[in-house]
Structures are given as structure tokens and as C-alpha cells.
């Protein structure tokens, strides 16, 4: 997994590439939590994410909760069908901001 971080004013964008599994979800989680230390809003670009397991979902949920606690917003963009199916299955589709 590879994460490219770009900061644009109050918004940080994390472009994630690769598989998000139990071995690397901590990395994503740290990147997400870390972003809220500098900016209020976070955009997570999943265009190049083909796979997300529950560990990745936990990172997203934690990120969402952090955003809420900091009155910020976390958005998921460019989610492909397979990952969307996982989000739908777990109810994250409605719980998270997905564009």
C-alpha cells in the first residue's frame, strides 16, 4: 500500500494505492488520524484501492469519528464497485461520506 498525502488549505487529501489489509491498515489509520492534527477536513481517494478488509474499515471508522470530534469532515471518493460492496455490506455506505 502506498499513500500520497497532499494538503490544500483546511483539507488534506490522501490518495491510497493498493490493498488495505490487516498488515497495513495501521499505516492508513495513522495517516488518517495524523491528518486531523493539521487540517479539519480529509478526503480519502480510493481510486486505486482494489481491496479493503475489516481492518481498513476500522481505520475509516476511527477517522470518521475523529473528524466528527474535531467538527471536520472525512470524505471517501472514487470508491470502486468491489470496495463499495464491502461498504454496503457493513452499513458503512450510509454511515460514511462517500462521493
Amino acid at each position: 500500500m502506498n499513500i500520497v498525502k497532499t494538503v490544500n488549505g483546511e483539507e488534506t487529501t490522501l490518495a491510497v494505492e493498493g490493498r488495505i489489509d490487516a498488515t497495513n491498515s495501521k499505516e492508513l489509520q495513522d495517516a488518517i488520524i495524523g491528518s486531523f492534527q493539521t487540517t479539519k477536513n480529509l478526503v480519502v481517494d480510493f481510486e486505486k484501492v482494489a481491496y479493503v478488509a475489516s481492518a481498513g474499515l476500522r481505520a475509516l471508522l476511527l477517522g470518521h469519528k475523529t473528524a466528527v470530534s474535531k467538527s471536520g469532515v472525512m470524505k471517501l471518493i472514487h470508491v470502486n464497485d468491489d470496495v463499495m460492496e464491502v461498504l454496503r455490506m457493513t452499513g458503512f455506505q450510509s454511515a460514511l461520506h462517500i462521493e
Binding site: A53, S54, A55, L57, R58, L61, L62, H64, K65, V68, V86, M89, T90, G91, F92, A95, L96
Partner: peptide, 18 residues
Amino acid sequence: DITLSAEEREIGGLGIFM
């Protein structure tokens, strides 16, 4: 309970659920 909002959701239990 997957109908809960994100704020109310527990962190664990998702794996086996999936």
C-alpha cells in the same frame, strides 16, 4: 448493528460479520 451511525458504531466485530 450496522444500522447505527458511524459515531455510535463499535470498532470490532466487523470481520466475522463480513
